[in-house]
């Protein structure tokens, strides 16, 4: 699904990530951990084409990202569901329209997907909040809405950046269960988090590989996780 070969990324002359080689096969479950500022978000952005490697090769769905123009990146992104810590909604649109946004940009009419939308809302427990505006939602509701939006096009890969950063333990367990459930449906999942308790809880439910970014490089985390 995503392959990195000696990928490095620099910004303003400063090397943020160096010599990263990694493969995310279909159906795998990865955690990406490391201290704040280590480059977890940058790594995820590379994975969904928001940033391009300074050197090395990154392949998305078997194609070299270097050969992608902006439209090709946009099309690839429709196969990658992204959940950000700050969710990134259009605050003037109700939750249901925010969730349906990927349908609109893909040229699919939301009306034709009404059943899917309702099913998804029900699955993330937001049926009663469909017409609320994003600022009216709690942290947990926002994260679930962001997850629903990431899933509406049934992507192959789900990348979540600190999805439990703004929610309580109970809600983070609920979100984790949803992500584990998706992985069992065959989706590739990668979660960037520094929440070690979440990782431990996940490892009890799913076979997850834990990666750690430190000093600009990536390696498998220790056995204590």
């Amino acid at each position: 699904m995503i392959e990195l070969e000696n990928v490095a990324y620099s910004y303003g002359g400063e090397a943020l990530l160096t010599d990263m080689s990694l493969s995310l096969p279909a159906g795998s479950f990865h955690f990406l951990t490391g201290p704040s500022g280590a480059g977890k978000t940058t790594f995820l952005k590379l994975c969904y084409g928001a940033l391009r490697p300074t050197s090395g090769a990154l392949r998305l769905f078997g194609e070299d990202l270097a050969a992608f123009d902006r439209d090709a990146v946009a099309l690839a992104r429709r196969r990658i569901g992204v959940v950000h810590q700050d969710c990134q909604f259009l605050d003037h649109l109700p939750v249901i329209e925010n969730i349906a946004l990927p349908l609109s940009v893909s040229g699919l009419a939301a009306q034709d997907q009404e059943d899917n939308l309702q099913e998804l809302l029900n699955w993330v427990g937001l049926t009663g909040r469909a017409n609320a505006l994003p600022p009216e939602l709690s942290g947990g509701e926002r994260q679930r809405a962001a997850l629903a939006r990431a899933l509406i096009l049934s992507p192959d890969i789900i990348l979540a950046d600190e999805p439990t950063g703004n929610v309580d333990w109970e809600m983070s367990q609920r979100l984790l269960r949803l992500l584990v459930e998706l992985n069992k449906m065959g989706k590739t999942v990668m979660i960037a988090t520094h929440d070690l308790a979440l990782i431990r809880a996940a490892k009890a439910q799913v076979q997850a590989r834990v990666l750690r970014i430190s000093d600009g490089s990536i390696q498998a985390a220790g056995a204590d996780l």
Binding site: A50, R70, D71, A74, L75, R77, R78, V82, H84, Q88, F89, L90, L101, P102, V105, S106, R149, L153
Partner: peptide, 12 residues
Amino acid sequence: AVLRLVGATDSY
């Protein structure tokens, strides 16, 4: 930024 995140092309 949000539109790009969800796969919108420049034309859209």
